[in-house]
Amino acid sequence: MKRCNKLAEVGRRQFLTGAVIAAAAMPAVALLPEKARAAGSARVEYPSNRLANIADLKPNEPLEVSYPDEDAPGVLLKLGKKVSGGAGPDGDIVGFTTICPHKGFPLSYNASDNSFNCQGHYSRFDAESGGQEIWGHATQNLPQYTLRVDDKGDIYAEGLDELLYGRLSNVL
């Protein structure tokens, strides 16, 4: 996979802030067993992290990002056609985790058919169909980012639609 390290670093600095806030918020509840009270919300609080600007994206070239924290690698893609879960003015920007939900191996992006592929056990996911598992062993389709693009073209991730591999809470 082609990488753009500089942009990835910019993104990383941005969302680290959000991740720290989320991490601090979670254990505070867990550390109070004596005073039983409702343990926060039913769902995790997702950070709103700026991952990149539209100008950083090249057509069909994955931009390495992480969400919701730096231990959760993923990519942004500008597919060039409106797709399921697509954000931005053209509805063609998507973001996905790149950890395979089967056994946690890194996925690589095949630009020729817009698919994510796992070298561990050959699972495949379709970037154009909301991460649907084309074929494979994962019992989930590929976790996709909920994206928001603001007036300046900044792309924010604000949620995930499936559980990430290797964590029992998407926000640690």
Partner: peptide, 13 residues
Amino acid sequence: RGVTFKSPEYSAG
């Protein structure tokens, strides 16, 4: 319309 019709064959590209 939500169904992928791509090849099932693994291909790292």
